[in-house]
Design a protein around this nucleic acid. Structure first.
Length: 306
DNA sequence: GATCGGAGTTTTGATTAGTT
DNA sequence: AACTAATCAAAACTCCGATC
């Protein structure tokens, strides 16, 4: 099987600096010609393999090649196999992905093409949960622990099974399994403090059952359809938060958006954050709540009147 | 058509013989 | 002794045809 031979050639070259095509041919019971074809394939995949002719020549890996066999984990090995398989199936021109995947494993240094910083502008980045730590917890199946402040302002120490990192509505969340509560829980990364990956490993083969929220729970968080009218000054934020087609331009230059929200303090805060650039059109009772909140705010500042 | 093999060719570096 | 050219062996490379 060609695939196994390619992998084995890499391993042999990792073990020794140089080997002749003849020796490889004998070892794999194929012709020398076949070995050269394998070398071409590996080279195509981005493996820094080269040949030198003549006396003391042979096949070797580029000097400074950092993928030591000690670091070649089962996962990486699988990645190589996958890349080669893809290459075999697709062959050019669509094999770029496979080539990239393989070359990324073999390159010494690769500039990160993406930088994820989920901390708002102007905030301190110290002491915040590192995405890499979360990734490590998920991939190594280790329990993670952290202090967390929930939406009801309750602070608690948590230890959970990390399952998946999710980016939703401008924030990173950790989907995890809470072994005490026997249910999935979502935690906002930015609210975590003292995040630690523990040494304790959990059984990743167990498939957890999603507990359906009880009808009581559903009632507690009703969804309400809200019609909002924005001024043009708020336009840039509208496209941050809504789909392009959901933002309707009115003749008088304002913009109307109809959206569904779970009704809570977050919603009121969200509406108020637009200041004088938004009006609640419907439902009327939410408009009244916003008005009363504005009046409370005015009352707060009245004490400074002289 | 993908994969492989045989046989011949080319390249390379070491060794040896010849020349200054 | 030092340099140069010829020779040789080893290994990569290529062409073309065979096989599954």
């Amino acid at each position: 099987m060609k695939l196994n031979r390619l992998i084995d050639i890499i391993f042999i070259l990792l073990n020794r600096q140089n080997i002749t095509a003849n020796e490889l041919a004998e070892r794999f019971n194929v012709s020398v010609r076949t070995i050269y074809r394998d070398i071409d394939t590996l080279s195509e995949c981005g493996v820094p393999i080269y040949t030198s002719k003549g006396y003391m020549g042979g096949i070797s890996l580029m000097e400074g090649f950092t993928l030591s066999k000690a670091f070649l984990t089962e996962e990486e090995r699988e990645n190589i196999i996958f890349a080669l398989e893809t290459l075999q199936i697709t062959r050019s021109p669509d094999s770029d992905q496979a080539l990239e995947k393989l070359s990324s494993l073999f390159k010494v240094k690769q500039q990160d093409w993406i930088c994820i910083d989920y901390v708002p502008w102007g905030s301190e980045t110290n002491n915040l949960t590192n995405l890499k730590d979360v990734k490590r917890g998920i991939l190594q199946h280790r329990y993670v622990s952290f202090d967390y402040v929930n939406t009801r302002n309750e602070k608690a120490f948590r230890t959970v099974e990390p399952l998946q990192l999710i980016f939703k509505e401008h924030s990173w969340y950790l989907k995890s399994w809470d072994t005490n509560k026997k249910d999935f829980r979502m935690f906002k990364l930015i609210r975590m403090r003292n995040f630690k990956v523990t040494d304790r490993v959990f059984d990743s083969t167990v498939v957890h059952e999603q507990i359906q929220p009880s009808s009581d729970e559903l009632k507690r968080r009703p969804v309400v359809k809200v019609t909002l009218e924005f001024t043009e000054a708020a336009l840039y934020r509208l496209y941050d938060n809504y789909n392009y087609e959901d933002v309707i331009r009115n003749e008088n230059g304002t913009y109307t958006v109809v959206a569904e929200y779970a009704e809570d303090d977050w919603l009121y805060g969200y509406i108020l954050s637009f200041g004088r650039n938004v009006k609640v059109i419907e439902p009327a009772y939410i408009r009244d709540i916003i008005i009363s909140k504005i009046q409370e705010m005015v009352k707060l500042y009245n004490q400074y009147d002289s």
